[in-house]
Design a protein around this nucleic acid. Structure first.
Lengths: 191, 191
DNA sequence: AGTCTTCCATACGCAGGCGTATGGTAGTTC
DNA sequence: GAACTACCATACGCCTGCGTATGGAAGACT
């Protein structure tokens, strides 16, 4: 799992991680169809020859990209867990999330492509992870697990949907309004 | 605009509307990439020759399919407007919407493909129409326009996001929970 | 009956993406 | 310094989709 971008002389050698990173960017920018070997090779200034040395096929590249995405979620969660107060933690989460249209774009691409069971499974796992993180915060504040779960599904759903509307240009309402409403829905004090 | 599926003898002739309908189904089922002339021709039991008589190119087919989708929204709105009581109207809307995963799937496909300005524009227009319909109901109940708008954005967003989570298999919570929460967020009495 | 219009089938060329085969280059190892 | 490995470039065949060109069938018109 330890792969490095290695640079020798003025010739740079690519790692599988470089390919995965570029693939994730392509996914966010152009959708699953844009995760195509030759265009990404051009973007990386190399050729297919490099790719098929590092990966078995295109599917493996997609999976590597999504693994990267999954790790990003873990990083964000780890960072937010530094915030002791659960209410402030959730508020920071919302602000954080709404400020990251790239992650939202990836989510939409995957939701759209959820007819592919492999894609759906990863998207489901990441969603589940995020929901669990939010639910834990509510439980910390004394909300019973079942109620917390139901509230968190709508809370995270609100984020997804409102981010989608902003992506479409169908909503330019200020973020504070949105955050206040979601916090209220989660039965948390406003920031 | 009057085109008919016409059947003469045992040979059926296709109309542009038949193509648009099939294209919309393909969009829902397989995404924008699945709106491809030849596969749809096979599905309709015909060939490209038919298609390029009815349409200028693939883009025109996509637009026709989305026009059909836009009309569906209008039909639903017209039907719901038969319900006099705004609160019950909104409740019926939510039940109606959550029972239609195909429409939701189309929404997700378009949100994902919103990097295409043409796609984004239609999706935005339809979203705006739905938001306006909901906002009108809230205003009927005395909510000031600005507040109604903000609530409705989160309400419709919640629908989109929760439908997405259900699509992923990340939520199997009962619909009544969701509906109650959204109705509460809209400051409407529960059903 | 012959022409005209409408609608469709077939065949073609082109482009782009996937995966493979094969050779080459630059370090590493002994 | 020679073999060896790791990494990459090039070239190829295949498939699928787009759009066009052209001919054919079947009813309508006169």
């Amino acid at each position: 799992m330890e792969d490095w971008h290695c640079e020798v002389g003025n010739v740079s050698r690519l790692s599988a991680g470089d390919w995965a990173k570029a693939a994730l960017e392509a996914l966010a920018k152009g959708g699953l169809a844009a995760v195509a070997v030759e265009p990404i090779a051009v973007r990386l200034g190399t050729t297919k020859g490099s790719f098929y040395w590092h990966f078995r096929n295109r599917r493996a590249l997609v999976e590597a990209a999504l693994a990267l995405w999954e790790q990003d979620t873990e990083k964000v969660i780890a960072a937010l867990n530094e915030i002791a107060d659960p209410a402030r933690r959730m508020c920071a989460l919302l602000e954080n999330a709404m400020a990251d249209p790239v992650d939202a774009a990836i989510s939409f691409r995957l939701i759209s492509a959820a007819d592919d069971p492999g894609i759906a499974e990863i998207a489901r796992r990441v969603s589940e992870r995020r929901l669990a993180f939010m639910q834990a915060a509510l439980e910390e504040m004394g909300t019973p697990p079942d109620l917390a779960r139901r509230r968190v599904v709508v809370g995270y759903g609100s984020y997804l949907g409102v981010a989608a509307l902003r992506r479409l240009g169908a909503s330019d309402e200020p973020l504070t309004d949105f955050i206040d409403q979601v916090m209220a829905g989660l039965a948390l004090p406003p920031s």
